[in-house]
């Protein structure tokens, strides 16, 4: 008769299923990645997956928690994937391993494990890596057709695991700065936006190839919205804020500020809007709170991109807003049934 109480039924759903759906939603973006940049990303995803699960298991053991149910919840896997998608695919293997291990061990388990981490673990991992290994973090693959030479999959593997390139190939020939980074550098040289965007690395909206990856994440995000894994609040307001601010700057000074769409389809804006900021554990729980959180993240992303020292602002914007979540939640508590203003029958006395 133990633990037999109402409700006696429950909706067939689980944390593992939710996380699995989020992983599935990443697939279109990953497919685009492979299409435009080659299969190296699959190697880092695999490395991140293995490291995430191994670290998760080790930490659970250390913390005397049941290993199997937590390993099966797919949350560690998701953290690993999000980190792998944030760092250059050609990064050395240990960069992925160190970053993922840090995400899981420090950002997740030292704070109490699933459900208790105040910061998005993947973004903590990204922040640690970009501060500790800035050089390795800026060697991004050049999309197909733009580099002077292209590596085969075997060459990519060789480079990831032993940092050796085929004879005669220089690293600069196969890698480049991100479109955002490149834009920033050239703006510093007092070049005009219209001239910079004429460079071959730029496509229709933003970076050649990377804009298509962003489309992939947008598609995955639409799936998450449709399957009610996430609500519209965070992605809509985040992208909306980013668009509005970038729009104002662009309208005032188009020579020095790129279009809002460039911001949408560059860097981590799309994956951030649908997959990172929407992490329920590290975002507000109230609807109003989500709006505040997303608007703040949008503003910070723009400011860091335009005025900050880092190529992208997504990760730091996320972490800064993560800090504010408890406060936002406290001050955005919605009124409860029967205690609202303007509803007939409201007899609340304060």
């Amino acid at each position: 008769m133990a633990a037999f109480f109402s409700p006696f039924i429950s909706k067939p759903d689980s944390v593992a299923q939710i996380m699995l759906k989020v992983l599935l939603a990443l697939l279109p973006g990953i497919a685009m990645y492979v299409w435009y940049f080659g299969p190296a990303i699959l190697v880092s995803l695999t490395l991140a997956s293995i490291t995430a699960l191994a670290t998760e298991a080790a930490m659970l053991k250390l913390r005397n928690r049941p290993v199997a149910p937590f390993l099966k919840d797919n949350s560690a896997l998701l953290t690993g994937w999000l980190l792998a998608l944030s760092i250059p695919p050609l990064a050395p293997w240990w960069l992925v391993v160190v970053g993922t291990a840090f995400c899981i061990a420090v950002a997740k388990h030292l704070y109490g494990g699933l459900g208790n981490n105040p910061f998005n673990p993947a973004m903590i991992g990204y922040a640690v890596l970009i501060i500790s290994f800035p050089v390795q973090m800026t060697h991004w693959l050049t999309p197909h057709g733009l580099g002077t030479t292209e590596l085969t999959f075997a060459d990519q593997l060789a480079y990831i695991f032993s940092s050796t390139l085929p004879e005669g190939v220089k690293l600069d020939a196969i890698t480049m700065a991100t479109p955002l980074d490149n834009l920033k550098t050239h703006l510093h040289l007092d070049e005009h936006v219209s001239d910079i965007l004429n460079m071959p690395i730029y496509g229709r909206l933003a970076g050649q190839g990377s804009e298509m990856v962003a489309w992939g994440f947008l598609l995955g995000g639409a799936y998450l919205l449709a399957s009610r894994i996430i609500s519209w609040h965070i992605p809509a307001v985040y992208l909306g804020t980013l668009f509005a601010i970038a729009g104002v700057f662009h309208l005032v000074d188009p020579a020095h500020y790129v279009t809002p769409l460039f911001h949408w389809f560059s860097g981590a804006a799309m994956i951030g809007a649908f997959f990172i900021l929407t992490d329920p554990i590290t975002s507000p729980t109230t609807h109003k709170g989500k709006l505040v959180f997303a608007a703040g993240a949008g503003l910070l992303t723009y400011l860091i991109r335009v005025y900050g020292g880092f190529p992208d602002g997504m990760a730091f914007a996320t972490l800064l807003m993560n800090i504010c979540v408890p406060l936002i939640d406290t001050y955005t508590q919605p009124p409860v049934f029967g205690k609202k203003d303007g509803v007939s029958g409201n007899k609340e006395k304060h």
Binding site: S14, V15, P69, D73, G115, N116
Partner: peptide, 8 residues
């Protein structure tokens, strides 16, 4: 068995 709350 109950899992931790993920604040969903």
């Amino acid at each position: 068995p109950a899992m931790p709350c993920i604040r969903c």
